[in-house]
Design a protein around this nucleic acid. Structure first.
Lengths: 250, 250
DNA sequence: ATAATAGTGTCTTTTAGACAATATGTA
DNA sequence: TACATATTGTCTAAAAGACACTATTAT
């Protein structure tokens, strides 16, 4: 009867899984979302040499107070960005996902405005790059990703895709102040489809606690648009309805 | 500049966090959701002696192929339930959440129909109990929970509360076949408010891929109601609209 | 003035909430 | 028959999609 109660005797001596944090860092490109990937070192006994991978690494029990701090550290090492929207996607742990042994990775995604893009501030800029994410959540131009990072990226992508339908998530991809047409374009780029202007404005402006006017902006557009700021940069707004009633087909 | 690149030299020798899995096992009681808690052992050097806690424990790199398998093992040890809806809530990891050191816990919740309730099949039934979850996601009758389990339970509760508004999650709390009034009651118990019959039926019956008729049931009700089965027991259905437009106040 | 982009008004459609009405089984 | 529960029908209200219309500014 090995079930017993629990390993109360000396859990500290049990073999422990490896613990890592990976961050899906996303920003807005001309054709949609772009993801930051890092190239793994080529020499030594490192697994997946030269393959592109999500930025991340082992939890440092000295440096990191908690998982979120660890994710922020990874983010800052690659982008020099300190403050941004960060959301935990989930954790993947399995015996076989890392050749070095049973490992758990905790995955976050970060949404960055284009203005904050200073790659390589952390040092090695050569092995870092931005890649277009395809409509299915993959990155074919980067080749096969290291470990199970393809799966992790796709999971983050799907989380975002579904939340864009009923939250204000894309607002975190813009620098403030932004205009409503800019916000709508962010939605459309992430969704991969166009939205109706009038309905979009009504939805955004009628949501209490979402936007605050910040004066007219001179973007160079023929008519100067109103600028807006987020009232709450910590949490996306949740709309009671999705954009379009899900149809079974088509 | 201690940022450097990463600890590539010998990560295998790095101190590793503890890795555990905790499961919020929920079922339907007369007054709402009930959660299964276990009482921690009293003697020895175990932290939080005699306190109630979520069932869980260390990942066993020998037994567990992956995190989900680990969660299912915990579930089975306490309830003898094999198949059920299991969803990952998220992970909490911090230096201070366990007195024994930096630890990560991966939290799942499981929804069980009342029919499957056979506590203590795993051996020690004495230290296991069901507790009513209050409308704020706490369990005052169990006293202060061990570790940060209060926070974990509340997080699982909040996840469920929000998903009930726009998914078919409560269906997993029923044994099949069930009736529409039973399903509505499950919703009402979780939500803590009443729903309109007519609207509820329309919503449920008009969702494609949700329910399949399973013949009239003789529940003892004056009029025998139709029984239904889930078409997909793996994934809840997602409705395009929440039950009630979120109001700012009231 | 013209063009281009920002912003508004209005009609239709959809669907949820409210609630009355009907159906069907038990006592 | 009386009653309780299941199920349906109908009206109303709220909000999104569609799309035409107006406003503002650069050229």
């Amino acid at each position: 009867m090995p079930a017993g109660s629990s390993a109360a005797t000396s859990p500290m001596n049990f073999p422990r899984p490896l613990a890592t944090v990976d961050v899906v860092i996303l920003t807005l490109g001309a054709r949609g979302l772009r993801v930051l990937l890092v190239q793994r070192p080529g020499g030594g006994d490192e697994p997946f040499p030269k393959a592109w991978a999500l930025p991340g690494g082992f939890v440092d029990v000295q440096k990191d107070a908690d998982l979120q701090a660890c994710a922020l550290r990874k983010l800052h090492e690659k982008t020099a960005v300190r403050s941004t929207y960060l959301e935990q996607v989930g954790s993947w742990g399995a015996r076989a996902r890392d050749p070095r042994g049973w490992s758990i990775t905790c995955v976050y995604f970060a949404l960055l405005p284009q203005s904050a893009l200073h790659i390589g501030k952390g040092g090695n800029a050569a092995d870092v790059g931005w890649f277009d994410v395809e409509p299915d959540g993959t990155v074919p131009t980067a080749g096969p990703l290291a470990f199970d990072h393809e799966r992790l990226l796709t999971a983050a992508w799907q989380r975002i895709q579904s939340k864009v339908e009923y939250t204000s998530l894309p607002a975190f991809l813009l620098s403030e102040p932004f205009t409503l047409p800019q916000l709508q374009q962010a939605y459309e780029l992430v969704l991969g489809r166009e939205l109706d202007r009038s309905a979009f404005r009504r939805r955004a402006l009628s949501m209490p606690g979402f936007l605050r006017e910040a004066g007219v902006l001179r973007t160079g557009a023929p008519r100067a648009p109103m600028g807006y700021e987020l009232i709450d940069r910590q949490q996306p707004m949740v709309f009671p309805r999705a954009f379009e009633p899900r149809t079974t087909r088509d």
